[in-house]
Each structure stands twice: as C-alpha cells, then as structure tokens.
Lab assay of single mutants.
Amino acid sequence: TYYTVKSGDTLNKIAAQYGVSVANLRSWNGISGDLIFVGQKLIVKKG
C-alpha cells in the first residue's frame, strides 16, 4: 500500500493510522529521521 503524505502528517500519525511502528515505516521507506514531505509517497505494509 502507498500513502501520500498530506500537510500536517507525521510519521507517528501515519504509523498509528495503519497500526504499524514508526521504525517499520522508516525501514520500508529508507528514512533515517522524522523528515517527510507533502506529496511524498510512503510504502505502508498493513500491521
């Protein structure tokens, strides 16, 4: 599943929405910090 980042989104918010961990979101998307951008597509695997 792909999720497109919207204004106001955070990794924590997206992780909670999908029932996954922030660590997994980072791993699946090659993100090291907490910086995400509006319009960015993130890979999300269902929890």
Rank of each mutant, 00 (worst) to 15 (best):
G33K: 08
G33L: 08
V22R: 04
L11W: 05
K45V: 12
G30C: 07
N12E: 13
I43E: 07
T10Y: 04
K45P: 07
F37K: 08
G19E: 10
V38I: 14
T10L: 04
G33A: 09
N24L: 13
K6V: 12
G33W: 06
V44F: 05
K46I: 15
A16I: 12
S27K: 14
K41E: 11
V20H: 03
Y2C: 08
I31G: 03
K45C: 06
F37Q: 09
I31M: 10
G39C: 05
L11A: 02
D34G: 07
A15T: 02
F37N: 10
G8W: 05
V44R: 01
V20E: 08
V44N: 01
S32P: 10
L25T: 01
I31R: 02
N24Q: 15
I36M: 06
W28T: 03
Q17I: 15
D9I: 02
I36W: 03
I43Q: 09
N29R: 00
D9K: 01
A15E: 02
T10C: 04
R26Q: 11
G8Q: 06
W28P: 01
A15M: 03
W28K: 02
S21I: 05
L11V: 07
K45Y: 15
G8C: 06
V44W: 03
T1P: 08
S7K: 12
L11K: 00
V44A: 04
Y3I: 08
T1S: 11
A15I: 02
I14A: 01
V38T: 09
N12T: 11
S7Q: 13
S21M: 06
L11C: 04
Y3A: 04
G19R: 10
V38N: 07
N29G: 01
L35K: 12
V5H: 00
A23T: 11
S7H: 14
T4Q: 09
R26S: 07
S7G: 10
N12H: 13
V38D: 07
S32L: 13
F37A: 09
G33H: 09
D34I: 06
I14Y: 01
T1C: 06
T10G: 03
Y2D: 06
D9P: 00
L42W: 01
N24S: 14
F37V: 10
V5N: 01
S32R: 08
N24V: 12
V5D: 00
Q40M: 12
Q40R: 05
Q17H: 14
I31C: 03
A16C: 07
K6S: 12
Q17W: 13
I31S: 03
L25E: 00
V5P: 02
D34R: 06
Y18V: 09
T10V: 05
Q40Y: 04
N29I: 01
G19F: 08
T4E: 11
G47N: 14
V5Q: 00
T4Y: 12
G19M: 11
K6G: 09
S32A: 15
V38P: 13
K41L: 15
K46Q: 15
A16D: 13
A15V: 03
T1H: 13
G30T: 09
G8I: 03
A15Y: 01
V38C: 06
N12S: 14
I36P: 04
V5T: 05
V22S: 08
Y3T: 04
R26T: 08
I43P: 00
S32W: 10
I43M: 14
G39Y: 03
